[in-house]
């Protein structure tokens, strides 16, 4: 379990990083926290010719608020974001979801943007970005483009990032809703979820439900429903529509049943939060 050889480059600034990507494209991989990429390299499942290490770029190690959005730079670790003092007030859903990302030790190095870039169908941060209507900031030599979450993650481990683009930040809109809840079912503490469900109450009887682990990317839906039975019915319909992934740990039917069982519970948990 030793990586194949590669060139290692540690650029001094984003421009250098972007220039390297322009020159090397697909042959290069961006290394930030390395919590997914390094494991992939150790298993020899990828063969990049170059690693571009952005973990030391101070200009990307920032959490900024502006235009009603919280912008998290590409080298901000998950634990740094978790410790950001305004998290619970500005992004209450993320405050609930971030502790489920990996473990203390992996959050110390794993980055917020890296997890979103990796685009695992059951991981928490892509679901959070989708739930909150966030966006991904991509830079290349051609300039900067901003993609909405739904346009960024296309499928399992697949995103709309072009090979010469660097994800410099993700942006989460400051949340006005205070009634939020999150639940996931995993085999062990800290594992990728079999299914992850997030709920935001928008107004009375109107809520947004996001689910990860059912398909190749997170799904977010708005519902007008009151009472467990109605929510359950809506979840059943959503399950039928999404079908559900099938793997060793859960059948598609089990995932649909989990969605049916837990959707009302998570909605009720959200409703219980002080508005």
């Amino acid at each position: 379990m030793k990586p194949r050889p590669f060139d290692y480059v540690c650029p001094d600034n984003v421009d250098e990083a972007v220039a390297l990507l322009a020159a090397h494209g697909d042959a290069a991989r961006v290394l930030a926290g390395g919590q997914s990429l390094m494991a992939i390299l150790n298993f020899r499942l990828a063969e990049p010719e170059m690693l571009i290490d952005v973990s030391r770029l101070a200009e990307l190690d920032t959490i900024r608020e502006g235009d009603g959005k919280i912008e998290v730079g590409a080298s901000v670790t998950q634990n740094k974001f978790l410790a950001w003092p305004a998290l619970a007030t500005k992004l209450p859903l993320l405050a609930k979801m971030l502790p489920f990302v990996g473990h203390f030790q992996t959050r110390n190095r794993g980055t917020v943007c890296g997890s979103i870039a990796h685009a695992d169908p059951s991981s928490e941060l892509p679901l959070a970005l989708a739930m909150l209507g966030g966006e991904v900031v991509l830079r290349s030599k051609k300039g900067t483009r901003v993609l909405a979450a739904k346009d960024f993650q296309l499928d399992m481990l697949t995103t709309a990032r072009e090979s010469e683009e660097l994800i410099t930040a993700v942006r989460f809109p400051v949340q006005s809703e205070k009634q939020v809840a999150f639940r996931e079912v995993a085999r062990r503490h800290g594992d990728f979820a079999i299914i992850a469900i997030a709920v935001v109450v928008e107004e009375k009887n109107k809520f947004r439900l996001g689910v990860g682990g059912m398909t190749g990317r997170p799904t977010v839906r708005q519902f007008n429903a009151t009472g467990d039975a109605a929510i359950r019915d809506a979840a059943v319909a959503l399950g039928v529509e999404l079908e559900g992934l099938e793997d060793m740990h859960a059948s598609a039917a089990m995932r649909r049943d989990l969605l049916r069982n837990l959707a009302p519970v998570v909605v009720n948990e959200a409703l219980q939060c002080a508005a």
């Binding site: 379990m1 290692y8 540690c10 290394l31 390395g34 919590q35 390094m38 494991a39 150790n42 298993f43 690693l51 290490d53 473990h103 203390f104 030790q105 992996t106 110390n108 190095r109």
Partner: peptide, 25 residues
């Protein structure tokens, strides 16, 4: 060597992390 077991955890600038998911460089 894939970041799950935690045996290789060390402090880097005071912060605990997996040394198997970190390059020497």
């Amino acid at each position: 060597e894939h970041g799950v077991c935690g045996c290789c955890t060390v402090l880097i600038d005071g912060t605990a992390g997996r040394s198997c998911l970190t390059l020497a460089v």
